[in-house]
Write a protein that binds this DNA or RNA. Structure first.
Length: 262
DNA sequence: ATGACATATGAGATATGA
């Protein structure tokens, strides 16, 4: 079984003890990290390599930043989502990695938040989703096992938020954001968590630091794993590591993972 | 709309997040 996880760590350096502890405890084969919030030179490569991982890092000072960790070599690395003239944000990294007869192309995605609506930030989010759609369509044509994982900053449905009314008008919940997300899924991808857990509303991957959201279980499900048909054929499990949110110095997001036969 | 909390930068207050 090959375990592939995604986690928005909200600074990999501030979160290093949590990340290393979680890697040792849950032993994922591939990890997609978002919001590492550092440049390539300051990524804690040695500490992570010591645990047996290869790293592909796309860094940026202070903001954004994504990485892929894998127990197998990473090949054919792509460091930007195609189609972004002048888009210099570190929000996308893609690579191919293999475990036995499973060759899987993975991408670590940090989609723009998009707030406030009505500004260029929201337009940027919608454009980014369009670019992701076009790239995801090209990837399908390769007929490979593909896992597009990350912080999509999209709440897919009313079941994925503690109070839908309170989020009307937010960039994460706007009909346009949700439709653009569905448009990617509807190309032929499988959203792993909801597919394997169709009757489990209110299972979240993010709880705000403020206003006691964690204590009240006021969360959002915004971190997702999208699988191509060839990956879906092998999908055996998918779940959320909720307990990470209760630790000291936790990220506001928790890991979500899937297991593929192979 | 603002602030609550957390993080980075850089050395005080501001930008960003969702």
């Amino acid at each position: 079984m090959v375990k592939i996880a995604t986690w928005n760590v909200n600074s990999v350096r501030a979160r290093l003890p949590n990340v290393l502890g979680w890697l040792k405890e849950t032993a994922p084969d591939v990890v997609l990290l978002q919001e590492i919030k550092c440049q390539v030179e300051t990524f804690p490569r040695l500490e992570i390599e010591d645990l047996g991982y290869n790293c592909a890092v796309v860094g940026q000072k202070s903001y954004n930043g994504v990485a892929i960790l894998s127990r197998s070599p990473l090949e054919d690395i792509t460091e930007r989502l195609p189609g972004g003239e002048g888009d210099d944000h570190a929000r996308y990294v893609e690579a191919v990695t293999a475990f036995g007869d499973l060759v899987v192309r993975v991408a670590s995605i940090y989609l723009p938040n998009g707030n406030p609506v009505g500004t260029e930030k929201y337009e940027y989010k919608l454009r980014w989703l369009d670019r992701l759609h076009d790239h995801a369509e090209r990837l399908l044509a390769l007929e490979e096992a593909v896992v597009l994982g990350g912080d999509y900053n999209v709440i897919p449905s009313d079941d994925d938020v503690y109070d839908p009314e309170a989020w009307i008008g937010d960039a994460l919940f706007k009909p346009e954001s949700r439709a653009a997300f569905r448009r990617v899924v509807n190309l032929g991808y499988t959203e792993a968590f909801r597919t394997l857990h169709p009757n489990e509303p209110h299972r979240y991957t993010f709880w705000d630091y403020t206003a006691g959201c964690w204590q009240k279980d006021f969360g959002l499900r915004i971190d997702h794993l999208l699988l191509s048909p060839q990956a879906t054929d092998r999908l055996k499990a998918c779940d959320i590591d909720k307990k990470e949110r209760g630790r000291e110095k936790a990220s506001d997001h928790v890991p979500i993972w899937c297991e593929l036969a192979g």
